[in-house]
Simulated assay, not measured.
Amino acid sequence: MNRKTETGRRSFGMLAALLAGLGLASAATTAQAQAKPGAEPIRIGALLSTTGGIAQVGLAEREGVLLAQKVLNARGGINGRPLEIVMEDDASSPDSAVAKVNALLFTEKVRAIVGPSGIAQTVAIGGITQAQKVPLFAFSGVGPAVERQRTCVFHLTPSQELNARAVLSYARDNGARRIGVLHDSGYGQVVWNSMKGLDREYGVNFVQVEKFEIAATDVTTQAAKVKAASPDAIIIISTSAAPFRNVRQLKVNVPIISVHGTATYETVKAMGDAADNIIHPEFIVSEDPLPSQKAFVDAYRAEYGKLPKHFSAAGWDAVMALAEGFRNAGADASGEKLCTALRRPFQGATTRYDFAATDMGGLTLASFTYSRLQKGQFVRLPYAAAKP
């Protein structure tokens, strides 16, 4: 089955040191007393894209998931029971996700699932988990209308329409009216589909829109057409470094606004000098974390020796939200009762969620933090998006 069960077997001393560093020394010193010897683990599944086209996303989520498991178990688990995670890789494929989720549900008998990483996988498996009343914490925003009927599928990232609104809010509020758009044929196309009908609402004009293939390594031709339209700002919707480099090579001097999917250290490193001054509507600026984010940022840096971004934070949030649900519903609660217990507000490291909202995530424009890249570092901007 190619699975790996993660049980957090590092020494308690190392975990105690980590928790002490987070200001949780009391939890560390009492964890052994809280844990029940021989207590049956609470078993959940993690279905992530750790290989394939969106592996960069899935691997970051995996780091957050495993860190949350480690910290929870060091605190004494969930009501004295350790958390066990059965890890599966869907290889960025919806078909593989269906096979893997069936194995998690019917062979591994997991109580809940964190993942998948991609929206296509979430749509594919959400009907299966919903029918079984097994909570699914998806790392995607609500998509097709059918998802709104799935009351046990929770969403940890914004919908593509909300992503589009976050970008357009910044453009409008900073005086850009003539907008050029460069987007790829994958993720970029999905966001653009949500953005293209919002021009009148936001008082902007899309003066030139250019599409490029998701695997393209040079989009100079498309970038030149956007430049020739003399836009006030350029929106680039892609997780590829190529369009950003090409726009800079053409010496385009108007603001460049991207989307939260680009706001990772790996992506901006691939851009080189082209990353400077790009604006991102995102969620966690680890160089300057909000008070609700600091414990997670400190734990992540202590564990991995680097700063986290929102994909890892979402992995942490999924596990922590589930743990709270088990505490409220009871470790042996039915799936339906657990789903009901989860449908409430939750303060995560990423943002504050409302899993009782109609989109089962509750993110709004106010959820976004805005940053500007400066020499590979994210700098928080004094800007908050408002409704049109």
Score class of each variant (00 low, 15 high):
1 M>V: 08
3 R>Q: 07
4 K>E: 13
12 F>R: 12
12 F>H: 08
14 M>V: 09
16 A>P: 02
16 A>Q: 07
17 A>W: 04
22 L>D: 06
22 L>Y: 03
23 G>C: 05
24 L>D: 08
25 A>I: 00
27 A>L: 00
27 A>R: 00
31 A>N: 06
37 P>G: 04
39 A>Q: 04
43 R>Q: 09
43 R>G: 05
48 L>H: 09
58 G>D: 09
63 E>I: 11
66 L>T: 14
67 L>P: 15
67 L>A: 14
68 A>Q: 11
68 A>L: 12
73 N>D: 15
77 G>P: 05
81 R>F: 03
90 D>Y: 14
93 S>N: 14
95 D>R: 08
95 D>C: 01
95 D>Q: 13
96 S>T: 14
96 S>L: 08
97 A>C: 09
98 V>T: 12
98 V>H: 04
105 L>Q: 02
108 E>I: 04
109 K>Y: 05
111 R>Y: 08
116 P>Y: 08
120 A>S: 14
121 Q>S: 14
121 Q>W: 12
124 A>I: 05
128 I>V: 11
129 T>W: 01
129 T>K: 02
132 Q>W: 02
133 K>A: 01
135 P>C: 00
137 F>L: 12
138 A>R: 06
145 A>M: 06
147 E>S: 10
147 E>A: 07
148 R>T: 11
149 Q>K: 11
149 Q>A: 11
156 L>K: 06
161 E>V: 09
163 N>Q: 09
168 L>F: 10
169 S>L: 04
172 R>D: 06
181 V>R: 11
182 L>W: 05
183 H>L: 01
187 Y>G: 12
187 Y>P: 06
189 Q>H: 13
189 Q>K: 15
192 W>N: 15
198 L>D: 09
201 E>A: 10
203 G>K: 02
206 F>Y: 13
208 Q>F: 00
210 E>Q: 15
217 T>M: 02
218 D>M: 09
219 V>G: 05
219 V>P: 04
221 T>W: 03
225 K>I: 02
227 K>Y: 03
227 K>G: 06
227 K>L: 07
230 S>M: 07
230 S>D: 15
230 S>H: 14
232 D>Y: 09
233 A>K: 15
234 I>T: 14
235 I>N: 03
240 S>Q: 10
242 A>H: 03
252 V>N: 02
255 P>M: 06
256 I>T: 14
257 I>D: 00
257 I>W: 08
258 S>Y: 06
264 T>M: 07
264 T>V: 00
266 E>G: 00
267 T>K: 07
268 V>L: 01
271 M>K: 06
275 A>E: 12
282 E>V: 07
282 E>C: 13
285 V>S: 08
286 S>D: 08
288 D>E: 13
300 Y>C: 05
306 K>A: 09
308 P>S: 10
311 F>V: 00
314 A>Y: 00
317 D>R: 00
318 A>D: 03
319 V>C: 03
322 L>T: 03
324 E>Q: 12
335 G>Y: 06
342 L>Y: 02
348 G>D: 02
360 M>F: 14
364 T>V: 08
367 S>V: 12
368 F>P: 14
371 S>D: 14
374 Q>H: 07
377 Q>L: 10
381 L>M: 15
